[in-house]
Amino acid sequence: MATKRIGPQTVRFDRPPVIIGAAAVAGPEEAQGPLGHEFDQTYPDLTIGLSSFEKAERQMMIDACRLALRRAGITEKPPAVDYFLAGDLLNQLITASFSGLEIGVPMYGLYGACSTFSEALAIGAKLIDGGFADRVLCAVSSHVGSAERQYRYPTEYGSQKKPYAQHTVTGAGAVVLAASGTGPRITYCTTGKVVDYGVADPFNQGAAMAPAAVDTIEAHLRETGRSVEDYDLIVTGDLASFGYEMAVKLAADRNLRLAKNYRDCGVMVYDLSRQNVNAGGSGCASSAIVTCGHLLKEMARGRLRRLLVVATGALFSPTSFQQGENIPTIAHAVAVEA
């Protein structure tokens, strides 16, 4: 009997797992954004002195893990955590897997495209509340150089982007979850379903993902009996400005008023008027570095008490969209409470 399930998509944790440490590392453009001062470490360039973007991304994930573990007071090597849950955007999860080699603890590699951050938090929290682990390290990353060459064009190729196109966030976020300790707690998680609302333009991921975000938010509120106002802040992962607009519209159609307390990490991470990022950020790191770098710190400062993180993922590959398929999307919600 699954006693912790309170609805078809939502579970409530009996002993809510605690975030005992978190860290965000970010690339140069993110460092120049409005949250630049919040990140635990920033890098002056995209390759950080390594020979490829992929190596740089891996180093960022390892750095984020190292910092989060230090925050959590875990200094052993290999770290005293039971599982490492990690994911990224690169084919065959090379960032996560190669980082796992370095971290050296039992590992599950996760893929939910840009929704991987809340996917990792949800699974980590379930492992802990289920009694399968005492401490879990979760990490995700993305990198503009490695993602662009895989999903779109070589970095030096000259092309004009449409205004709704997005810019992959460079960086990594890591969280240490524990059965006990001090810090904000993960109280509920709502697992998204894959949806397809017919968007096929790979440059318009925000619009493709907005329905997934609204579906999951709606399911979360319905199954927990909460309302939008119960949260100090609801953030989606990387809808960016156009996806945000579409999410607000779709939500209004379903009598959900997403307004003052609703924001999008892809919009927050850049200064859209000054930085050359079109509609805003995308990528696993978007939700991860904004949550780990900024929002969890705001909770520690007492400015936020209840937070709903809804990381959104576009589950397509270059193969699927070149073969003319739509872009299926997903969103997972995790409630974090001080």
């Binding site: 205004p163 709704y164 609302y197 968007v199 318009n204 619009a207 156009f242 607009e245 579409m246 519209k249």
Partner: peptide
């Protein structure tokens, strides 16, 4: 939804 997106999509 596709129609809604195309209508709202910011043009270049």
């Amino acid at each position: 939804y596709r129609r809604m997106v195309l209508k709202a999509e910011p043009g270049p």
